[in-house]
Nucleic acid binder design. Structure first.
Lengths: 153, 153
DNA sequence: TATTGTTATACTCTATAACTATA
DNA sequence: TATAGTTATAGAGTATAACAATA
């Protein structure tokens, strides 16, 4: 049987809801990030990229400090770190000052990989912001930060 | 000052990355959504709310059409629909015209619940946008839509 | 042959609670 | 007692592949 033409659905109020548009945009951006890395033969999630940047800029930090900076629970961090350590990108060293904590760091391979990843993220960022002027991109980030700060009430 | 302030981590380029700010904002907004519903003694995710609105405005639509509108796989939709049907908010009826498809609809209880949910979503939206003028909120949605349309390339 | 819905399966992300070792 | 890291567990969200019923 011939398929009827795709009728556009009635989306009601959804297109005017900031939360809804934010969620759909984030989903599309995530897909673009994944596709960018897949096309380059690399595998990394946005969360892993953020983690690598923070460890790179704050060598020796603890898992608690990292989890807090990422906004996730310390138990959530464990399997993520396990994966990156299994890929030899990150190391857990013994802290010299506190036997309870680990001093996190990038391996040389991790630092090299981060440099490659950063170029891919750059390309990805350029693509998703291609419809916006530089001023608009800055404005978008500023508005998002205001929303972020008003949320989690 | 009695004691030194906690040292702020170096976040490197992350605060200037649209994808990063988008992800953190979405996470905060999600937490606000959840808290809004929990405080009211209701349980609903943003995705479930979007689903209910689409079913309400397009009674009789199929699971494929709904999955496409939500941007998810048809297999992903099944357990979500099972949950909402178990809560007696949504029904799968036999389609009169195509034996393969289900005609989805809200139950009377589902329609009543959606009215309550919509009020909570309104309060949530008002709160997360409280730092923005009406024009800024419109602008933010417009910029997000541009980003969404440039992504998933 | 193609489509719809379902199932089986597999990851990731997220959390809470309890355990251990250390402070 | 309190903190850091781990483990066990659970739930949501996401997907692919394969299957039955129907078109």
């Amino acid at each position: 049987m011939a398929r009827p033409l795709a009728k556009t659905l009635d989306r009601g109020v959804l297109p005017s809801l900031l939360g809804y548009v934010l969620r759909r945009t984030q989903s599309a951006v995530f897909a673009d990030f994944a596709a960018t890395f897949a096309r380059a033969g690399e595998a990394l999630t946005p969360g892993e990229f953020g983690l690598l940047v923070l460890v790179d800029r704050n060598a020796g930090l603890s898992q608690m400090a990292l989890a807090r900076a990422l906004g996730i629970d310390r138990s959530t961090l464990v399997p993520i770190l396990n994966r990156l350590q299994a890929r030899s990108l990150v190391v857990r060293r013994a802290s010299p000052t506190d036997g309870r904590t680990h001093a996190l760091g990038l391996t040389p391979a991790g630092a090299a990989a981060l440099a490659r990843f950063a170029r891919l993220v750059s390309a990805h960022e350029t693509r998703i912001a291609a419809g916006l002027s530089t001023a608009e991109t800055r404005k978008l980030i500023e508005l998002l930060e205001k929303v972020r700060d008003r949320s989690r009430a």
